[in-house]
């Protein structure tokens, strides 16, 4: 699997935003939709999320695979948790008569159940939508400065940049190591026994880790030798909030505040037609 970060939404509306916005907005959205029960309310939020996502201009064919994966996975989770088993705490406030019992599990399914699982699905999918721009619309080199400007320690912030520097090379040396072991007759085990399988991964996991660590010693030396480690460093990339950025943040902050109060006032219940 390709691990090098992809930068897709470069010059879209979101692509032009200050990267901090792309990081903060999903957090606000998270606060907003957490624990929402009413499917109509959730639908509203989901539409907002969709608009936000579309404004990122991420080419569909690039992320088709990701979406296919997310959607199936989330549908299954929600299905299993709500419709097939009663894994979810559904407020009793809107007691609805069971429509039918689920075959196999015999779990009673009511309109409330369906409505609530709808809410859940929408919540997860919309959260994924809010997450995508973080991955695809922030230029690889910009993450470090973004965190630094959000108050993270400058050095740790640089660590984020460094992580993305190491990703491709780590993936490459993993391939090298797998090759090196294959010429020694190493092969993936056919066994189902998890312990055996874990053991059988040692020839890959251990050399990759050890070599990366040995190299890291040199890398940290090289960084010291180029004066890394002061409390403050210059970042070539300048970040500045524009008016649009403020508006966007303010909008989502307001949404979060509104929905939180709405929930606190307890006005939010599972919707049953």
């Amino acid at each position: 699997m390709d691990v090098t970060p992809r930068y897709l939404g470069g010059d879209s509306f979101l692509g032009r935003r200050d990267p901090r916005v792309l990081l903060l907005v999903p957090v606000l959205y998270l606060v907003a939709v957490a624990r929402i029960d009413d499917v109509r309310m959730m639908l509203g939020c989901a539409l907002l999320a969709l608009t936000y996502y579309l404004s990122a201009g991420i080419p569909w064919r690039e992320v088709r695979a990701n979406w296919a994966f997310v959607l199936t996975l989330m549908t299954i989770t929600v299905g299993v948790n709500s419709v097939f088993t009663d894994a979810l705490q559904i407020e009793t406030t809107a007691e609805a008569p069971p429509l039918f019992d689920m075959p196999l599990t015999g779990n009673p399914v009511s309109v409330a159940t369906l409505s609530y699982s709808g809410t859940l699905l929408l919540r997860f999918v919309s959260m994924a939508m809010m997450g995508f721009p973080v991955a695809f619309c922030i230029a690889p080199g910009d993450l470090g400065i973004t965190f630094a400007r959000l108050g993270v320690s400058q050095r740790l912030a640089y660590g984020v940049d460094l992580t993305f520097r190491f990703l491709p090379s780590t993936a490459a040396s993993m391939q090298e190591i797998i090759d090196a072991q294959r010429v020694r007759g190493y092969d993936h085990p056919r066994t189902g026994n998890p312990v055996r399988r874990l053991k059988s991964l040692k020839p890959v996991v251990i050399p990759l880790t050890v070599n990366s660590l040995i190299d890291a010693e040199d890398t940290s030396n090289a960084m010291d030798l180029r004066a890394f480690g002061a409390k403050h460093r210059t970042w070539m990339r300048e970040l500045a909030f524009g008016r649009t950025d403020y508006l966007l943040l303010a909008g989502f902050a307001a949404l979060a505040a509104a929905l939180v109060t709405y929930k606190i006032l307890g006005a939010d219940v599972v919707w049953v037609p």
């Binding site: 960084m223 180029r226 004066a227 890394f228 480690g229 002061a230 403050h232 460093r233 210059t234 970042w235 070539m236 300048e238």
Partner: peptide
């Protein structure tokens, strides 16, 4: 990288 760590002004870097 190096000049950034030295905290030099962007123009100079």
């Amino acid at each position: 990288f190096g000049p950034e760590n030295l905290g030099l002004p962007r123009a100079e870097i």
